[in-house]
Structure formats: C-alpha cells, structure tokens
Computed example of a mutant assay.
Amino acid sequence: MKEDGAIGKRIKELRKKNKLSQDYVAKKLFISQAAYSLIENSQNGVAIGHIVNLSKLYNVTTDYILKGEKLLVEISPNNGFIPLVKDMAHAGFIKNFKEQHSYEEYEWYRIPGFNPSLDQSLFEVEGESMSPTLLPRDIVVCQIQKIEKVIDGAIVLLITKNETTIKRLRLDGNQDYLLVESDNPHEEGVQKVKKEDIKQLLVVLGKISSSLIPHHQIVSTGKIKGLEESVDHLKRELYSINKKLNSLKN
C-alpha cells in the first residue's frame, strides 16, 4: 500500500505541475473523474495502460511514475535523439513517414555538434550516385525544409511516393519541377523531379562516415583547386590588361 501511495502522489504532483484538471486527465485515460480521483488518493490501483498514457502525457518515463527514478534517459527527439533509417527500412519510411516514430522501429542516436530537433532524421546511404561526396553506408544527418527555402547546390534527400533519393539540387526557377543531379560523373546528368510527387524534402546537414578518402584523391583534388585558382588569377590579369589597352586607345 505504501508503494501505491507513492505512485498516486507522483501522479498528482505531475498533474498539478502541468496545471491540468482531474477531469482533463481522466478523459485522456478514458475513465471517469471519480475513478481518476481514487487513483490519485491511492484508493484504487493504476492500470499498466494508464501508466503508459500518463508517461506520454507528462513526457516522463514509466519508471519515474512507478518508482520515482529520475536518472533514466528517455529516448525521444525532445531529449536530443535522432532516429536512424537504415537503407533496408527506406521503403517502410516512405509508407509511414508522417506517423510518429516508435521506439521499437528505429535505432536512436545523439550526434555531437548537431542541434537535434523534431524535424531531423538519420539516413543510411545506399548506392553510389553521390560518390565520392557520399559513399554507401555513410550516415547523413537530414532536416526537413521547404522547397522554396533550399539554396542552389544543396544536397537534399527527396521522399517521393516510390523512393528516397539523395541528389544535389540545381535551381532554375521552374514552378513545376526540381532539377537534381548526381555527384558521381558516371551517373546520368540533370534529372527532373515533379514537385507534386515530392512528399517531403530534407536538406543534408552533414554526414558520418567510416570510409577514408584515398591519398591520391586528396592530391588530385588539391591540384584541381590550384588550377582553378590560377585560371581565376589569369582572368583578373587579362581583364586588367584589356582595361588599360582600352584606356590608351581612347
């Protein structure tokens, strides 16, 4: 009875802390106000289903209601956890993406350096359409974004009625289509995606990878960057020379 009394007391404290009436909470539990009052006063036991519903209502763990333990970490987006959608689960995500994430359906992680929100998800990359930027089995951190707010060149994850796909966005002002392309030079070029077919668009904020970039690739990238800078410098020099020549002619 002493334990039942402590449970009733915690339930009552939670209700008062959240400034809710007994009648309101009773309706959430689908019982009468009189029956709920008996639970708070420890004259009636509390059913397991009611404990689960009360934990969701007050955003606390069931262990806190039952035993008063506060040191447990609740896995939810409110506590900084982000659900991971593995490549094999992409089809299921497409089907149920508007429904609330269940704890059993996905693995959950906290990512240092990211500001978690309810709009963020982790996706495992499948395929090589974005290689070498993204490699198979890389994990990308994505956040829901409105199409009109995405900048040109951003990497986005598109959820359509048939698939999830990661591409680089190219804006051209078209009202009906989005232009997307792969970073992999061996993949097909720019593709059109109907905006009406897009169920959700997420911007890729970052990635987690276990793959190391080969040294020769880093060297090649550095050389290309150096060449680009040299070309830009030559362009500026030519512009300056042409400007001086035009001034002499005049």
Rank of each mutant, 00 (worst) to 15 (best):
H50M: 10
L54V: 04
L54W: 10
K56L: 14
Y58F: 15
N59I: 08
T61P: 02
T61V: 09
T62I: 11
D63W: 02
D63P: 02
Y64S: 03
Y64D: 03
I65Q: 00
L66V: 01
K67L: 03
G68Q: 01
G68R: 08
G68S: 05
G68N: 06
G68C: 03
E69L: 13
E69W: 05
K70C: 06
K70M: 10
L71I: 07
L72K: 07
V73I: 08
E74Q: 11
E74K: 09
E74R: 10
P77L: 01
N78D: 14
N78G: 11
N79C: 00
G80H: 12
I82R: 00
L84K: 00
D87T: 11
M88Y: 05
M88W: 00
M88T: 12
M88K: 11
H90I: 09
A91T: 12
A91F: 10
G92A: 12
F93Y: 15
F97N: 13
K98L: 06
K98G: 14
E99Y: 01
Q100G: 13
Q100S: 14
Q100F: 01
H101A: 12
H101Q: 04
H101M: 06
S102M: 02
S102I: 03
S102F: 01
Y103C: 03
E105G: 10
E105T: 15
Y106D: 07
W108N: 03
Y109D: 00
G113K: 09
N115H: 13
N115E: 13
P116N: 13
S117F: 07
S117T: 15
L118I: 09
D119K: 14
D119Q: 11
S121D: 09
S121V: 14
L122A: 04
L122G: 02
L122K: 01
F123Y: 13
F123A: 05
E126P: 09
E126Q: 15
E126D: 12
E126I: 05
G127Q: 02
E128Q: 15
E128Y: 15
S129P: 12
M130I: 11
M130N: 02
M130C: 08
S131M: 15
S131V: 14
P132Q: 03
P132Y: 04
T133L: 11
T133W: 07
T133C: 05
L134T: 04
L134V: 05
L135D: 03
L135C: 08
R137I: 03
D138P: 11
D138N: 05
I139A: 06
V141W: 04
V141I: 12
Q143Y: 01
Q143W: 01
Q145T: 05
K146A: 04
K146E: 06
K149I: 02
D152P: 06
D152F: 12
G153M: 02
A154V: 03
V156K: 03
V156T: 04
L157G: 00
K161N: 15
K161E: 12
K161W: 06
K161G: 15
N162I: 13
N162W: 02
T164F: 13
T164D: 05
T164I: 15
T164N: 13
T164H: 07
T165Q: 15
T165D: 11
T165Y: 14
I166A: 12
I166M: 09
K167N: 02
R168P: 06
L169P: 00
R170L: 11
L171M: 12
L171C: 07
L171D: 14
L171T: 09
D172T: 08
D172Q: 13
G173Y: 11
N174Q: 11
Q175F: 01
Q175D: 13
D176Q: 06
Y177E: 09
